Amino acid sequence: MIYSRGAMGEDRFAAGGLLCVEYYEGAPLSYVSESAALGLRDLAASHPVVPTTTRTPEQFRRIDLPGGPWPYAITSNGGAILVDGQADASWRRGIDATVRSASASLDEVTAELRRRISTEWVSKFRIAEDLFCYLVVDVDVQPHDFMSEWSTWCIDHGWNASQQGRKIYSMPDPVCKSRAVAEVHRRLTEAGLLTSGSPVLAAGDGALDAEMLASADAAIRPRHGELESIGWQHPTLTITEHTGIAAGEEILDWFTRSASVPVAS
């Protein structure tokens, strides 16, 4: 939903009609169009909207996303559920226990990953929330077989690997957005904010979003990003006509239309 100046392109940036929603170290970083901002505010005023991201809680809190404050948000790729902005400790304890029983430890994974990389093509190695790790790489210098070989190792150890542009994520399998979405849906239903069986509508553009999109009752992705590059499809998936920041507006229009009619089972 949000785009940097580089991601949207200079022509779109120069056209204006943008709202800056994220500053980093005092400088503007991310934007939505004014149309998307209005659409998101209207949607959040009439339906439960749950921002869901691979960003950490700290990174998510940098964003002043239109429509907030958010009673629930999902960060860290599902590793954290924020309730009124604060991480739910009980959810995190459950995630940690599941990871311990089903996947290799973070220490084991990072040790193996460091053995396979080089400063010639990796500029940053980050550990997020003591849950997963990611690299920032020079794609032009990155070894062509790195992702295939690293993905194979991860699969054998209960993890998965995904590349989104210059970032390569390594994630334990239990840390996924769909689990957290299902939990928030359960809580909203128990609180009477959703009727039983209310459909889940989802949007995303990266491989880490795929299982969330597939598990939703209906989903949409933009005609750009990692899922577009691999041609990812699903029977309940809609693909936007537009790319870039215009796709964000189209996604919000889709949410508004889809939320007003029953989703076919």
Rank of each mutant, 00 (worst) to 15 (best):
S118Q: 07
G78L: 03
L43S: 09
V50P: 02
S178H: 15
R62T: 10
P51L: 02
L131P: 01
L188H: 01
M1S: 10
Q142F: 13
Y169R: 01
E129V: 04
A161L: 06
L237H: 09
I251K: 06
S258C: 14
Y134L: 09
E10M: 10
G206K: 07
V109I: 13
R55M: 13
L208H: 10
Y72A: 02
S123G: 06
A264Y: 08
Y3C: 07
V21I: 01
E129L: 08
R257H: 13
D96R: 15
V184E: 02
T98Q: 10
I95C: 08
L135H: 11
A264M: 10
A180I: 11
Y24N: 12
I63G: 02
W159Y: 07
A87F: 01
P235I: 12
S30T: 10
A27I: 11
S118T: 00
D64Q: 13
G244K: 03
G39E: 00
P28C: 13
H157D: 08
E25C: 09
T75N: 07
E34R: 08
C154D: 01
V32R: 07
L43M: 09
Y3Q: 03
V49F: 05
W254D: 09
T189N: 04
G6F: 00
E58I: 09
L188S: 04
A104Y: 01
R61W: 05
E190P: 10
G192H: 04
D253G: 12
L208M: 14
G16Q: 02
R179M: 02
P222Y: 13
Y24H: 15
V139S: 15
T195A: 14
T54D: 12
P28N: 14
I117L: 13
G68I: 08
G248M: 05
V50Y: 03
A210I: 08
I127F: 09
L19H: 04
R116D: 03
D156P: 01
G204Q: 05
D173A: 12
R61A: 15
S178E: 02
R257Q: 14
E34T: 09
L193A: 12
R100Q: 05
H185T: 11
C176K: 02
V21S: 00
G17M: 03
R61S: 14
V136E: 14
Q163C: 03
A246E: 12
V181H: 06
